[in-house]
Protein backbone atom coordinates (compact mmCIF):
# COMPACT_ATOMS: atom_id res chain seq x y z
CA UNK A 1 0.00 0.00 0.00
CA UNK A 2 3.05 2.20 0.45
CA UNK A 3 3.40 4.49 -2.49
CA UNK A 4 6.32 3.95 -4.77
CA UNK A 5 9.11 6.22 -3.65
CA UNK A 6 11.01 7.74 -6.49
CA UNK A 7 14.58 6.59 -6.34
CA UNK A 8 15.67 10.20 -6.69
CA UNK A 9 13.99 11.02 -3.40
CA UNK A 10 15.50 8.00 -1.79
CA UNK A 11 18.95 9.05 -2.90
CA UNK A 12 18.47 12.52 -1.48
CA UNK A 13 17.18 11.10 1.81
CA UNK A 14 20.06 8.72 2.04
CA UNK A 15 22.63 11.40 1.35
CA UNK A 16 21.09 13.79 3.87
CA UNK A 17 20.73 11.20 6.60
CA UNK A 18 24.24 9.84 6.16
CA UNK A 19 25.70 13.33 6.21
CA UNK A 20 23.93 14.19 9.44
CA UNK A 21 24.73 10.81 10.94
CA UNK A 22 28.42 11.08 10.15
CA UNK A 23 28.50 14.64 11.44
CA UNK A 24 27.03 13.54 14.74
CA UNK A 25 29.34 10.57 14.93
CA UNK A 26 32.41 12.51 13.84
CA UNK A 27 33.77 13.48 17.30
CA UNK A 28 33.84 9.82 18.26
CA UNK A 29 35.40 8.78 14.98
CA UNK A 30 37.98 11.53 15.23
CA UNK A 31 38.90 10.46 18.74
CA UNK A 32 39.35 6.86 17.70
CA UNK A 33 41.44 7.87 14.69
CA UNK A 34 43.60 10.20 16.74
CA UNK A 35 44.32 7.48 19.24
CA UNK A 36 46.31 5.70 16.56
CA UNK A 37 48.39 8.74 15.58
CA UNK A 38 51.68 9.97 16.96
CA UNK A 39 51.42 13.10 19.06
CA UNK A 40 52.87 15.14 16.21
CA UNK A 41 50.36 13.93 13.64
CA UNK A 42 47.59 14.45 16.14
CA UNK A 43 48.03 18.20 16.07
CA UNK A 44 49.22 18.50 12.48
CA UNK A 45 47.84 21.39 10.46
CA UNK A 46 46.16 20.62 8.13
CA UNK A 47 44.73 17.65 9.99
CA UNK A 48 45.30 14.14 8.64
CA UNK A 49 42.39 11.74 8.43
CA UNK A 50 43.52 8.29 7.46
CA UNK A 51 46.81 8.64 5.64
CA UNK A 52 49.12 8.44 8.62
CA UNK A 53 51.34 5.79 10.15
CA UNK A 54 49.10 3.90 12.50
CA UNK A 55 50.64 3.23 15.87
CA UNK A 56 49.63 1.55 19.10
CA UNK A 57 52.17 3.38 21.21
CA UNK A 58 49.54 5.60 22.85
CA UNK A 59 47.69 2.59 24.18
CA UNK A 60 50.94 1.18 25.51
CA UNK A 61 51.73 4.45 27.26
CA UNK A 62 48.27 4.77 28.76
CA UNK A 63 48.30 1.19 30.01
CA UNK A 64 51.71 1.77 31.51
CA UNK A 65 50.71 5.00 33.16
CA UNK A 66 47.59 3.78 34.87
CA UNK A 67 46.02 0.54 35.87
CA UNK A 68 43.32 0.48 33.22
CA UNK A 69 42.14 -2.99 34.16
CA UNK A 70 41.35 -1.87 37.68
CA UNK A 71 39.35 1.15 36.56
CA UNK A 72 37.49 -1.01 34.05
CA UNK A 73 36.74 -3.65 36.65
CA UNK A 74 35.49 -0.99 39.07
CA UNK A 75 33.21 0.42 36.37
CA UNK A 76 31.78 -3.01 35.63
CA UNK A 77 31.20 -3.82 39.30
CA UNK A 78 29.70 -0.45 40.12
CA UNK A 79 27.45 -0.17 37.07
CA UNK A 80 26.46 -3.84 37.12
CA UNK A 81 25.97 -4.06 40.86
CA UNK A 82 23.87 -0.93 41.14
CA UNK A 83 21.70 -1.95 38.20
CA UNK A 84 21.01 -5.47 39.40
CA UNK A 85 20.35 -4.32 42.95
CA UNK A 86 18.04 -1.64 41.58
CA UNK A 87 16.07 -4.15 39.51
CA UNK A 88 15.65 -6.44 42.51
CA UNK A 89 14.16 -3.61 44.52
CA UNK A 90 12.16 -2.19 41.62
CA UNK A 91 10.42 -5.31 40.26
CA UNK A 92 8.14 -5.79 43.29
CA UNK A 93 7.44 -2.05 43.47
CA UNK A 94 6.59 -1.86 39.79
CA UNK A 95 4.38 -4.95 40.11
CA UNK A 96 2.42 -3.22 42.85
CA UNK A 97 1.99 -0.03 40.88
CA UNK A 98 1.04 -1.71 37.63
CA UNK A 99 -1.30 -4.39 38.91
CA UNK A 100 -2.70 -3.08 42.18
CA UNK A 101 -2.97 0.59 41.34
CA UNK A 102 -4.51 2.93 43.87
CA UNK A 103 -5.32 6.59 43.82
CA UNK A 104 -1.85 7.32 45.11
CA UNK A 105 0.09 5.28 42.58
CA UNK A 106 0.69 8.10 40.16
CA UNK A 107 1.67 10.45 42.97
CA UNK A 108 4.18 7.96 44.33
CA UNK A 109 5.61 7.47 40.88
CA UNK A 110 6.02 11.17 40.29
CA UNK A 111 7.41 11.65 43.78
CA UNK A 112 10.03 8.99 43.09
CA UNK A 113 10.96 10.75 39.91
CA UNK A 114 11.14 14.08 41.69
CA UNK A 115 13.78 12.71 44.08
CA UNK A 116 15.96 12.52 41.01
CA UNK A 117 15.62 16.24 40.62
CA UNK A 118 17.18 16.94 44.01
CA UNK A 119 20.53 18.46 43.15
CA UNK A 120 23.21 15.98 44.09
CA UNK A 121 25.56 18.76 44.99
CA UNK A 122 23.13 20.00 47.62
CA UNK A 123 23.58 16.82 49.59
CA UNK A 124 27.17 16.05 48.68
CA UNK A 125 28.63 16.95 52.04
CA UNK A 126 26.11 15.03 54.17
CA UNK A 127 26.63 11.97 52.00
CA UNK A 128 30.36 12.48 52.33
CA UNK A 129 30.07 12.54 56.12
CA UNK A 130 27.80 9.50 56.18
CA UNK A 131 30.24 7.66 53.96
CA UNK A 132 33.13 8.48 56.29
CA UNK A 133 31.07 7.31 59.29
CA UNK A 134 30.18 4.04 57.61
CA UNK A 135 33.62 3.56 56.10
CA UNK A 136 32.16 3.59 52.60
CA UNK A 137 34.33 6.34 51.17
CA UNK A 138 36.29 5.13 48.15
CA UNK A 139 34.58 1.75 48.25
CA UNK A 140 32.72 0.02 45.46
CA UNK A 141 29.94 -0.94 47.85
CA UNK A 142 29.31 2.70 48.63
CA UNK A 143 29.05 3.65 44.98
CA UNK A 144 26.87 0.67 44.17
CA UNK A 145 24.42 1.86 46.82
CA UNK A 146 24.47 5.51 45.78
CA UNK A 147 24.09 4.81 42.08
CA UNK A 148 21.35 2.29 42.79
CA UNK A 149 19.44 4.96 44.69
CA UNK A 150 20.13 7.50 41.97
CA UNK A 151 18.70 5.30 39.25
CA UNK A 152 15.97 3.56 41.23
CA UNK A 153 13.22 6.00 40.17
CA UNK A 154 14.08 5.52 36.51
CA UNK A 155 14.19 1.75 36.90
CA UNK A 156 10.84 1.69 38.67
CA UNK A 157 9.30 3.91 36.04
CA UNK A 158 10.60 1.90 33.11
CA UNK A 159 9.50 -1.41 34.62
CA UNK A 160 6.13 0.10 35.48
CA UNK A 161 5.54 1.15 31.88
CA UNK A 162 6.44 -2.34 30.69
CA UNK A 163 4.34 -4.13 33.27
CA UNK A 164 1.35 -1.99 32.44
CA UNK A 165 1.36 -3.50 28.97
CA UNK A 166 0.87 -6.97 30.42
CA UNK A 167 -2.81 -7.83 30.77
CA UNK A 168 -3.77 -8.30 34.40
CA UNK A 169 -5.96 -11.25 33.39
CA UNK A 170 -2.87 -13.36 32.81
CA UNK A 171 -1.70 -12.80 36.35
CA UNK A 172 -5.21 -13.53 37.60
CA UNK A 173 -5.16 -16.73 35.60
CA UNK A 174 -1.95 -17.67 37.37
CA UNK A 175 -3.60 -16.92 40.68
CA UNK A 176 -6.56 -19.12 39.76
CA UNK A 177 -4.11 -21.80 38.69
CA UNK A 178 -2.80 -21.89 42.23
CA UNK A 179 0.33 -19.79 41.92
CA UNK A 180 1.48 -17.91 45.00
CA UNK A 181 2.52 -14.30 44.67
CA UNK A 182 6.16 -15.33 44.43
CA UNK A 183 5.40 -17.93 41.77
CA UNK A 184 3.22 -15.48 39.89
CA UNK A 185 6.08 -12.98 39.67
CA UNK A 186 8.77 -15.59 39.05
CA UNK A 187 7.06 -17.85 36.52
CA UNK A 188 4.61 -15.57 34.76
CA UNK A 189 5.38 -11.87 35.10
CA UNK A 190 9.17 -11.93 34.84
CA UNK A 191 9.43 -14.18 31.77
CA UNK A 192 6.78 -12.10 30.02
CA UNK A 193 8.61 -8.91 30.85
CA UNK A 194 12.06 -10.14 29.79
CA UNK A 195 12.44 -7.66 26.92
CA UNK A 196 11.43 -4.80 29.19
CA UNK A 197 13.68 -5.92 32.01
CA UNK A 198 16.57 -6.32 29.56
CA UNK A 199 16.25 -2.83 28.20
CA UNK A 200 15.87 -1.39 31.70
CA UNK A 201 19.01 -3.24 32.68
CA UNK A 202 20.92 -1.92 29.70
CA UNK A 203 19.87 1.68 30.00
CA UNK A 204 20.66 1.83 33.68
CA UNK A 205 23.95 0.08 33.21
CA UNK A 206 24.87 2.79 30.72
CA UNK A 207 23.65 5.59 32.96
CA UNK A 208 25.62 4.20 35.89
CA UNK A 209 28.70 3.62 33.74
CA UNK A 210 28.69 7.25 32.64
CA UNK A 211 27.72 8.80 35.98
CA UNK A 212 30.33 11.41 36.79
CA UNK A 213 29.35 13.31 39.91
CA UNK A 214 29.33 10.75 42.66
CA UNK A 215 32.00 8.62 41.05
CA UNK A 216 34.35 11.60 40.91
CA UNK A 217 33.58 12.92 44.37
CA UNK A 218 33.30 9.76 46.43
CA UNK A 219 36.28 7.80 45.17
CA UNK A 220 40.02 8.20 45.36
CA UNK A 221 42.40 5.46 44.32
CA UNK A 222 40.75 2.19 45.27
CA UNK A 223 37.23 2.27 43.87
CA UNK A 224 37.64 4.78 41.06
CA UNK A 225 35.92 3.75 37.84
CA UNK A 226 36.65 4.83 34.27
CA UNK A 227 35.10 8.29 34.73
CA UNK A 228 37.86 9.07 37.21
CA UNK A 229 40.45 7.41 34.98
CA UNK A 230 39.60 9.77 32.16
CA UNK A 231 39.22 12.80 34.39
CA UNK A 232 42.87 12.43 35.33
CA UNK A 233 43.64 13.36 31.73
CA UNK A 234 42.12 16.79 32.15
CA UNK A 235 45.23 17.92 34.00
CA UNK A 236 47.85 19.69 31.86
CA UNK A 237 50.12 16.65 31.69
CA UNK A 238 47.34 14.84 29.90
CA UNK A 239 47.29 17.40 27.16
CA UNK A 240 48.68 15.06 24.60
CA UNK A 241 45.92 14.50 22.11
CA UNK A 242 46.92 11.06 20.99
CA UNK A 243 47.19 9.70 24.50
CA UNK A 244 44.03 11.46 25.56
CA UNK A 245 42.29 9.87 22.59
CA UNK A 246 43.62 6.45 23.43
CA UNK A 247 42.43 6.74 27.01
CA UNK A 248 39.06 8.08 25.86
CA UNK A 249 38.67 5.27 23.38
CA UNK A 250 39.41 2.75 26.07
CA UNK A 251 36.85 4.35 28.38
CA UNK A 252 33.99 4.48 25.89
CA UNK A 253 34.48 1.51 23.60
CA UNK A 254 33.13 -1.17 25.94
CA UNK A 255 29.87 0.68 26.44
CA UNK A 256 29.70 1.82 22.82
CA UNK A 257 29.84 -1.76 21.60
CA UNK A 258 27.30 -2.88 24.19
CA UNK A 259 25.07 -0.01 23.10
CA UNK A 260 25.35 -0.82 19.40
CA UNK A 261 24.46 -4.44 19.89
CA UNK A 262 21.54 -3.73 22.14
CA UNK A 263 20.35 -0.71 20.21
CA UNK A 264 16.90 -2.13 19.42
CA UNK A 265 16.14 -3.10 23.02
CA UNK A 266 17.43 0.16 24.29
CA UNK A 267 15.37 2.36 22.05
CA UNK A 268 12.14 0.71 23.09
CA UNK A 269 13.11 1.18 26.72
CA UNK A 270 14.16 4.76 26.26
CA UNK A 271 10.68 5.90 25.40
CA UNK A 272 9.54 5.58 29.04
CA UNK A 273 6.07 4.68 27.89
CA UNK A 274 5.85 7.85 25.85
CA UNK A 275 5.00 5.99 22.70
CA UNK A 276 1.93 3.88 22.21
Amino acid sequence: MARAVTSRRKIINTAAAWTVGLLIFFPILWTILTSFKTEATAIADPPVFIGFDWTLENYATVLERSDYARFLWNSIIIAGGSTILGILVAVPAAWSMAFVPSKRTKDILLWMLSTKMLPAVGVLYPIYLIFIKLGLLDSRTGLVIVLMLMNLPIIVWMLYTYFREIPGEILEAARMDGASLKEEILYVLTPMAVPGIASTLLLNFILAWNEAFWTLNLTAAKAAPLTAFIASYSSPEGLFYAKLSAASTMAIVPILILGWFSQKQLVSGLTFGAVK
Partner: peptide, 9 residues
Protein backbone atom coordinates in the same frame (compact mmCIF):
# COMPACT_ATOMS: atom_id res chain seq x y z
CA UNK B 1 26.42 6.82 19.63
CA UNK B 2 27.04 10.08 21.54
CA UNK B 3 24.55 8.87 24.15
CA UNK B 4 27.00 6.16 25.18
CA UNK B 5 29.95 8.49 25.63
CA UNK B 6 30.61 9.39 29.22
CA UNK B 7 30.32 13.14 29.93
CA UNK B 8 33.91 13.39 31.12
CA UNK B 9 35.16 11.98 27.85
Amino acid sequence: SPFFVMPTV
